[in-house]
Design a protein around this nucleic acid. Structure first.
Lengths: 128, 128
DNA sequence: CTTGACCTTCCAGTGGCTGGAAGCCCCAGG
DNA sequence: CCTGGGGCTTCCAGCCACTGGAAGGTCAAG
């Protein structure tokens, strides 16, 4: 399969696929004309990466996960640890966003939002 | 005040302050030796920017908010709209993270996390 | 006079792509 | 045989909001 076909099949931009090759996540062979030739294993790896990325894992996490995926002698605790760390980072982000959200929502409530210049949002930002 | 003093006072890296000048968010005058000289108004603007950034507004939002802040004839609805859009984006992010979180937490629960290779996390990523 | 803390500019890198230019490859239609 | 259009290639630049570091000027203390 050529890159375009893979891109359509996985719903992944061709640019992204080239980028993944660039940073060494996969190494599809080339046809005589220089085109990348994706075997089923390459497509499968790509699908794995796409799903891991969709779960929010960083590229480096994905690299580690992929190598564990391909290592029949892995210990599942290694995978679990990566996932737990990721979960913890997600929880931090959610907590941070919730805190922003609550401050922001309060300020918005206090603002009349009309043609007059008085604005508690700006006042708050201005004197913290 | 020199940049270092401002940086300490606002707890903002000097690099960031220079960057803000670079992108035109403020324009502190210079001393004869070329050092930036921050007047109270400059420090005040910087503090405004720092708080807006801490609330998660983008730099472009900050630019707009600052210009509204300095415009005595503003209509508060313009400020409110920026804040509401930002709130909506935050809500989207929270929702997205919550969805990731729930998938991930489920996978983690299913994984033994021991020395054996069997791993539902990898299985899931591998076959979607 | 030296030391060390400060300041300056400029260039490069972060993450994870994304856009675009320039140019080759291939196939169908006229 | 030529042309057009799509797909493929590489490479360079840009996104956001900084951050790090090099090379060099400035200043106050000892």
């Amino acid at each position: 399969m050529n890159i375009g076909a893979v891109a359509r099949r996985l719903n992944l931009p061709a640019k992204t696929i080239r980028y993944y090759e660039d940073i060494g996540l996969l190494r599809p062979p080339r046809d005589e004309n220089g085109y990348r030739h994706f075997r089923e294993t390459d497509v499968h790896k790509l699908a794995f990466l796409a799903r891991a990325r969709a779960l929010g894992f960083t590229i480096e996490d994905c690299r580690a996960l992929l190598s564990l995926y391909e290592d029949a002698g892995r210990e599942s605790v290694r995978v679990k640890r990566i996932a737990e760390d990721h979960l913890a980072r997600i929880d931090e982000k959610i907590e941070h966003l919730r805190s922003l959200r609550s401050t922001l929502a309060h300020l918005i409530e206090c603002c009349a939002g009309d043609h007059r210049p008085d604005c508690p949002i700006l006042e708050d930002l201005g004197q913290g």
